[in-house]
Design a protein around this nucleic acid. Structure first.
Length: 308
DNA sequence: AATCAGTGCAACCGCGCGGTC
DNA sequence: TGACCGCGCGGTTGCACTGAT
């Protein structure tokens, strides 16, 4: 038999058994918004009581931060935001609030939900653990370069179209990545990904910014260039086709080398993964294939990779 | 048309930390 | 110095919605 639990201090503060739970009503939202507009945030238990809300302070705080705050961004994650999430999660793990600090307008809850519903779903489809090295390598050497290329292309098209400002948010997001404070991108080891540039894109803003950031970080930019679809890998990884167990073992950028693979060849370090799912890595064509982030059924590259 | 499974997201819960008394 | 309190964080749950059967 369930014992009646004691009221917590905040439940008592909010009025004990009159507490409301579940979805918020429009009236409650208005009460909360109007009260905060007049008195500001903070002291959530007192706020809930004074605003006349039959909610816990916790509930009010959550509702405000995740939904009612005027600067909350809604809608699909942009490629830049996805890239940032992948990068920062690789660095910090499930530190959602810390990650959210680098995605203006996105809440930790939203990022957490994105990770659980999208990223973990991909891992599940690939039959590997989201925390496994294989999956991390897949993100690092496939998805992140694809996202970077997508960002690169959208920034180029934006530059060529004086009237195009639709990607303004995207541009500001990637700017925050490229111009992030030193700890964000200047880790002592090689940034975990880098798209190799072909001769036509070598002078692109995106690539120059990335190279500049790497230089700022104290490591010279990669000296090799190759065709667009190739990915610059750390030399050790490329030479032995095996990833090191963690980022700390990556060599400096000066030692990076170019690695490419064909349709019949598994991605370096991912052989086991693709053995499991019994598919070879398809070469993705950035000209014709949408990037990850599109509905997976609409993405032939994704579909092919999963063997769907 | 009804049912079921999958998905996405808002909201809740429990824990831990830091401040205050 | 230890108890209490408020708050923030990460994990989990519940539910509405949608598409498949």
């Amino acid at each position: 038999m369930m014992m009646a639990r004691e009221l917590s201090s905040e439940e008592e503060a909010a009025g004990g058994d009159e507490l409301r739970r579940g979805p918020w009503t429009v009236e409650e939202d208005l009460l909360l918004v109007n009260y905060i507009a007049a008195h500001g945030e903070g002291r959530w238990n007192a706020l809930a009581r004074c605003a006349g809300l039959k909610r816990t302070g916790k509930s009010c705080r959550l509702r405000w931060l995740n939904y009612l705050r005027p600067d909350v961004r809604r809608g699909n994650m942009t490629a830049q935001e996805q890239l940032l999430i992948l990068e920062l999660h690789g660095r910090w793990g499930n530190r959602w609030s810390k990650i959210a600090q680098h995605l203006p307008g996105r809440t930790d809850n939203e990022i957490k939900n994105y990770w659980r519903t999208r990223v973990q779903k991909h891992a599940k489809h690939l039959n590997c653990d989201v925390n496994s090295q294989q999956f991390k390598d897949l993100m690092r050497y496939l998805w992140m370069p694809r996202l970077l290329e997508r960002i690169h292309r959208s920034s180029q098209s934006a530059l060529s179209d004086a009237d195009a400002d639709a990607d303004a948010d995207d541009a500001s997001c990637i700017t925050s990545l490229l111009h992030a404070p030193a700890p964000l991108l200047s880790s002592p080891h090689t940034p975990p990904f880098a798209m190799a540039a072909d001769t036509t894109s070598n002078d692109s803003t995106m690539w120059q910014q990335h190279q500049a950031q790497m230089s700022i970080a104290g490591a010279p930019p990669p000296t090799t260039t190759t065709v667009t679809q190739h990915v610059v890998l750390p030399a050790a990884a490329a030479s032995c086709h095996q990833m090191q167990p963690d980022d700390q073992s990556f060599v400096g950028a000066a030692e990076t080398t170019t690695c490419c693979w064909s349709e019949s060849e598994s991605l370096p370090g991912l052989a086991g993964l693709y053995d499991d799912v019994a598919v070879a890595l398809p070469e993705f064509d950035v000209e014709t294939m949408p990037m990850w982030g599109a509905v997976e059924g609409d993405d032939p590259w994704y579909t092919q990779m999963l063997g769907l």
